[in-house]
Amino acid sequence: MDEISADNKLGMRIKELLQEKSISMRHLSKLTEIDTATISRIINGKRKANLNHLESFAKNLEVPVVDLIEAAGYGAETTEEKNRTGVQIELNYTKKLLAAYQIEVEKLTMENIERELKVHQEYSHTDEGRKMIITGFKEKLKKAGSANSFVQQLEDMYHRFRVQKGTKTEITLLGGALIYFILTLDMIPDYMFAVGLLDDVLIVKYTMLLLK
């Protein structure tokens, strides 16, 4: 393996992990289904790893994907860009799951998520939007299943919106996410058994990251 530049943090990290686990690049290629030449170029800093590469490396080298994301230089992004990157990884997982159910996933993109949220955020400032949230949230929540972290986050978001706890920007973010959750026909219709709330989970996670 060629000498790796000291500023190539991702290459150095992958090389360390390969040595620790006694795995060759050829074997990593079989595990990840990424061409050996591509892995070599990433390690030697001749090619930038994309999110799919990092996700596969993290899974098969048994490290948190966020470690490799930061090593690859994504950590230099703004907070909003980092949040978007994290949700993009979640989105990739969701698409794989939907593909297993043979469900069309073309509409499920970060661009569409952000576009839908913007529309709902604006609507949450209207009297009709606020009324929808206050009167429709609890009924919709009953369909989200038993107590879990997703439901808890939704309840916290609803409470903050109802008492207007936070800045104007925070209330806008909360309102947009809550309206998206309440509406039945969104990017993945809620009536679709087992997968109908996957896009709602993404929206909530993204909004919680933005609130931080």
Rank of each mutant, 00 (worst) to 15 (best):
M1D: 10
S5K: 15
S5D: 15
A6M: 10
N8V: 00
M12L: 15
M12R: 13
I14E: 12
I14Q: 09
L17P: 09
L18K: 13
S22H: 12
S24N: 04
S24F: 02
R26L: 07
H27S: 09
S29R: 09
D35R: 03
T38Q: 07
S40R: 07
I43T: 01
N44G: 11
K46Y: 04
R47E: 15
K48V: 12
A49E: 05
A49L: 03
N50Y: 02
L51R: 07
N52S: 14
H53R: 07
L54C: 11
L54K: 12
E55P: 01
F57Q: 10
A58W: 08
P64I: 09
V65S: 05
L68E: 12
L68R: 10
I69F: 06
I69A: 05
G73F: 00
G75A: 13
E77I: 02
T79A: 07
E80I: 06
E81I: 03
T85Y: 02
T85L: 10
G86M: 09
V87S: 08
Q88R: 05
Q88A: 11
Q88Y: 01
E90I: 05
Y93W: 12
K96H: 08
L97V: 13
L97I: 15
L98R: 04
L98Y: 05
A99F: 05
A99N: 14
A100K: 12
A100V: 10
Y101S: 06
Y101D: 03
Q102M: 04
I103Q: 10
E106S: 14
K107D: 14
K107V: 08
L108R: 02
L108T: 05
L108Q: 01
N112R: 09
N112T: 08
E114C: 01
E114N: 03
E114S: 02
L117K: 06
E122M: 11
Y123N: 03
Y123A: 04
Y123R: 09
S124V: 08
S124K: 06
S124D: 07
D127R: 14
E128R: 13
E128V: 10
G129Y: 15
R130L: 01
F137D: 06
K138V: 02
K138P: 01
K138C: 01
L141C: 02
K142E: 12
K143P: 00
A144T: 07
S146Y: 02
A147I: 12
S149Q: 15
Q153A: 10
R160Y: 04
R160Q: 13
V163F: 14
V163C: 12
Q164V: 08
Q164S: 14
G166I: 07
T167M: 03
K168H: 08
E170K: 11
E170N: 13
G175T: 11
L178I: 06
L178C: 09
L183M: 08
D186R: 09
D186A: 01
D186Y: 00
M187H: 01
P189Y: 00
P189I: 14
F193Y: 11
G196D: 05
G196P: 08
L197P: 01
L198V: 03
D199R: 01
D199C: 03
L202I: 10
Y206I: 00
M208F: 02
L210C: 11
K212D: 15
